[in-house]
Amino acid sequence: MTAIDISSVTKRYGSETALEGLDLTVHSGDIYGFLGPNGAGKSTTINLILDFIRPTAGEVSVFGLDATEDTLEIRERTGILPEGVETYNRLTGRKHVEFAIESKDADDDPDELLERVGIADAADKKAGGYSKGMTQRLMLATALVGEPDLLILDEPSTGLDPNGARQMREIIREENRRGATVFFSSHVLGQVEAVCDRVGILRDGRLIAEDTVEGLRETMPTQTRLRVQLDRIPDDAEGALEAVRSIDGVSEVQADGPSLLVTCEDSAKTTVLHTVEEYGVTVEDFTTDSSSLEDLFVAYTEGDADARGVAP
């Protein structure tokens, strides 16, 4: 089953192209992380799914229904946390949730929902006095009304402190366990990495990668930085450096007193250690830092992605 299907969608504003031939599929039951730097077109994509804007070309469907034609039916089954959403300043938090419940013809308890997002104590305060984080929590509460089949959250962690962001992830997981598909965008990878089944990376209006978190890790050339601490500088220091450099898979070697910093492929690590020891020194300690997904994200979204040959 497909929850969201975007096929060859282009969106232009005048001469400016926000999205170019975007294809994206979110399967039912998935938590889909929609990643990309600010200005990549994430909100444009989400606004198209929500029918806040209409595509210049291509088709957007949700639950197999046309996003523009069948908005109402889609809305009834979807909970939404749009980007840049604002509350009604003169109405209380509870009033907002009650309005969502009435609109969705649901029978949720407003206080229970406010409790769940952690602003039960502010339920009777006017939303105009809420902080950005509280507004975000309130909007999440309204999105949860009526146990939607699909949750669409645009940068849900905006304005939340780390604890709030953690609660947000927890709620996303809970909703997913209940059976909801979750589609959320972020420009911060850490939020996506922890919860997503699938990740799509958008850059300059194009989807440049789409895979599971593990899958993305695998496509990344696995360069490792190996730091080797020796008991002393080898007598033939030059010869040692030259020997390490000539190992297959090593791309860079730097010496810093009795320590070496080697950039190499993961598989070359042991060869590096053995080779150094052949020069009559002892390896006291070594550390490796494998590329984090953060590096991966940066690698994908900065510079020339096509040259990396990972564009699907």
Partner: peptide, 14 residues
């Protein structure tokens, strides 16, 4: 302008 319309239209209202 404020963005509250997104809340309103995010709910099942045409």
């Amino acid at each position: 302008e404020s963005g509250s319309l997104k809340f309103l239209l995010g709910l099942p209202h045409t």
